[in-house]
Write a protein that binds this DNA or RNA. Structure first.
Lengths: 239, 239
DNA sequence: CTTGTACAAATGTCAGACATTTAATAGACT
DNA sequence: AGTCTATTAAATGTCTGACATTTGTACAAG
């Protein structure tokens, strides 16, 4: 893999890190591949070696690369990537073509975790949490039937899940929800959205909301599982 | 707060970052305080400005600091810290006096998450996973009855939980297990360890191991919950 | 065939100058 | 007196070139 396929970069050093990270996340390099040298990267994008080093430092901190003096830079195995690193989270936002292995791993995690979170939310939710969930759900309803509001619909969908994590009133789960934001967004963007599937998705979200409002932890778990089953169908993981 | 109270630093730039981070985690600076300038830090520790900048870059990435050109470096609010950042995890290891609020939040998270993880492990564990769990458990047994092997016992305990997360064969859960390592270690160190409670703890861990070996997801969930109930008692959260 | 040496290539580090951003200050005009 | 503007100082951000250190390789001596 060479740098030629990458789009031209413009802006600060953060953009360079983002650009390279997204190429890695999309699977343009295989684990074990040697990464281009600092000077080559700098020459290709016409930036100083400093900026290249700053960008590579970020990628290394996120576990994407391994650098050793004299040997060069290598792409690390996916298992070593720091998926929960906020940097990673930021880079994944806006990225549509995720590595399929990542997509299924993130989906599997959410399928196991979100029912628990919804259950906790049913026990711990307060008035302001319910308000957040309500707003997000109403936004989803409002934007369901127009094609041009699709981006807004995705935002409300993410906001709904974020509000669920937040309603658990646990610091760790709340961080998880924040970190998963872009992943959830990516999953939503990969989903097929026809009119009938959207109606079904809305109905399942509504059941989560109602269960949390009724403080019924068991029902919330079940409903959250149903939402994710719908997601699996839309993703093409199952039919 | 000045730098004078900090121990002298020796070694690479990583040590400097660790030193400053642990000072922050110990509460030596209050949120909103201005952090010393690059040149002052460099002069105090007798290192180049480059090393200081590298260290501060790490702390900024972890959400501990906020730096703006011209204004200086500020300590961010605790709510903005990236608790799940691998860097943070590394810096927390070795710190014993965790914030009580943090302890209970982490315990609550584990109580909700680990049963699910154990269930996944029962479904997905392979031969090598069982071997890791076996080794960790046998280590726990071997070090249970001697006071001087207490540190080793804690290591095996942590290894057991890490192996459980790993056996789930999910990339995200595996990362969680890795990130929770120092937190789990801190919880173990806070626990009371008398002989009878240790026997009870061992018995409950054994049931998790057996359930995973028998591929019984439901039993694994229940057993994991029992292990954490024991932990809660040892922590003094419940009696 | 092994070992040692020299060399090349890559990342790591340093020092200094300069750029940019921000806040404070002094001064001029109304 | 008050307010706007220009200047200055202080901090972080960036660039550049040189040098240090680590690693892999080629080659020759034993």
């Amino acid at each position: 893999m060479t740098l030629d396929a990458l789009p031209l970069h413009q802006g600060g050093a953060e953009n360079l890190a983002r650009l390279l990270a997204q190429a890695l996340l999309a699977g343009h390099w295989q684990p074990g591949d040697v990464f281009p040298r600092e000077l080559d990267i700098g020459a290709h994008f016409n930036v100083s070696r400093n900026q290249v080093r700053n960008a590579l430092t970020s990628l290394t901190a996120a576990g994407l690369l391994e650098r050793t003096a004299g040997r060069g830079t290598q792409v690390r195995d996916i298992g070593d990537w720091h998926l929960l690193d906020p940097l990673m989270s930021e880079w994944m936002s806006g990225l549509i073509n995720l590595d399929p292995q990542l997509v299924s791993a993130i989906y599997a995690f959410r399928y196991s975790a979100e029912p628990v979170v919804a259950g906790l939310a049913a026990q711990a939710a307060q008035a302001e949490d319910l308000e957040r969930l309500d707003n997000a759900f109403m936004g989803m309803e409002k934007t369901a039937n127009s094609a041009e509001a699709r981006a807004d619909h995705a935002e409300y969908d993410v906001a709904f899940h974020d509000a669920t994590y937040r309603a658990s009133h646990n610091l760790v789960w709340r961080q998880m929800g924040h970190l998963l934001r872009p992943s959830i967004m990516a999953l939503i963007h990969r989903s097929q959205h026809r009119t009938d599937t959207l109606d079904d998705s809305l109905a399942r979200h509504r059941q989560v909301l109602e269960a949390i409002r009724n403080r019924d932890a068991h029902a919330a778990e079940t409903a959250a599982r149903e939402v994710l089953r719908r997601t699996a169908i839309d993703l093409g993981i199952v039919s």
